[in-house]
Nucleic acid binder design. Structure first.
Lengths: 191, 191
DNA sequence: ACCTGAACACCGTTCAAGT
DNA sequence: ACCTGAACACCGTTCAAGT
């Protein structure tokens, strides 16, 4: 019971903190998280080491959930081209607050090695899920399957990260327009 | 003299703040900026409205300088494919602190509309510089030159932003590997 | 055992006093 | 006119006191 209670408390605090982070970013105060979750300052420090530890927990949870969603979507093992996997990746239902805090975590991770380590772990898991999604396609190509799937997965990750920046900040293109534009830019050069 | 003095003071403060931001991120305190620039707290508030205004100034300056560098690099008007423009873009000399604070600004901009407006302005200027770089190539293609150059420039911007995230946080690929991978993923599908 | 909330050192910002 | 730095309200964090 105690373990379950503790896990529930952490989740209650993390959920409240996520809401405030999405509104206030790095201006988020413990007092506001306290107000949002209905507990006290002491309760937060009984469940997390400090504010940075709470942020790491939120980042880990946020990204962990997405990996399962992607894995489920490609569980059928169908042959999907990189463009099809990217299309799938970009349309995974994603609440707007998530994108905002994801960009906040990226920025903070450049100066916080412990947060960076959390993001690296999750990004690697994510990339491996993309490798699994791309493997059927890579097997149909003349190159060695594994290196091609890995490199292509890394390219897809980078392209999605760029798409997130664009979506959250500039709103220039839809996912479909991005993919069409990339195919046009990198597709057959003699077109 | 007064205007020049004021501009120099702002630059002195901004340069010091940039150094501290690259080390401490959102933990950066006014006290640390004061120590770095050798002035006083009051001097900062005489030259900037507040901490957020100082951040906006730094973001604007940082990105403004880059646009000139890109424009200079493509001033010859040579025909460059999207891959060649991207290669150029990714190899513009860029001090490591710049990439860290750029990611920090992206994260903060998701919750700070005024900072977001500064980034949008600079991103549009940047995109227009990429349009100029791509126009000679776009003119050799069968589609309408302007829409193709614009959309391709947006795609290039997004891909570079994704490359920055990867470089700053994960270090998976060099720029050349990213481009090769993208050409392999989106190039002739029947290869 | 866990939670509360007053207490503490430090934060961003202001402004009277200096030059 | 511009700069200084003590002062103020508020921040993250702790911990004695409660249940």
């Amino acid at each position: 019971m105690s373990d379950a209670h503790r896990a529930a408390r952490r989740e209650q605090i993390a959920e409240a903190a996520l809401q405030v982070l999405a509104r206030k970013g790095s201006d988020t105060s413990i007092a506001e998280i306290v107000a949002e979750c209905g507990l006290s300052a002491g309760a937060i420090y009984g469940n997390f080491e400090n504010k940075a530890d709470l942020a790491r927990y939120i980042a880990g949870q946020l990204l962990h959930r997405r990996i399962g969603t992607l894995d489920d979507a490609v569980a059928d093992g169908a042959v999907r081209t990189p463009a099809e996997v990217l299309r799938l990746f970009m349309t995974l239902r994603r609440q707007p607050p998530d994108l905002s805090v994801l960009l906040q975590f990226w920025g903070e991770a450049t100066v916080d090695p412990e947060l960076k380590a959390v993001l690296e772990t999750r990004a690697t898991e994510f990339r491996d899920a993309v490798v699994r999604a791309l493997r059927p396609w890579a097997a149909t190509q003349p190159e060695d399957t594994e290196p091609l799937a890995l490199r292509t997965a890394e390219v897809c990750m980078a392209m999605v990260q760029g798409y997130f920046v664009n979506t959250a900040l500039f709103g220039w293109m839809t996912g479909a327009e991005y993919l069409d534009g990339a195919e046009r830019a990198f597709g057959s050069p003699l077109h």
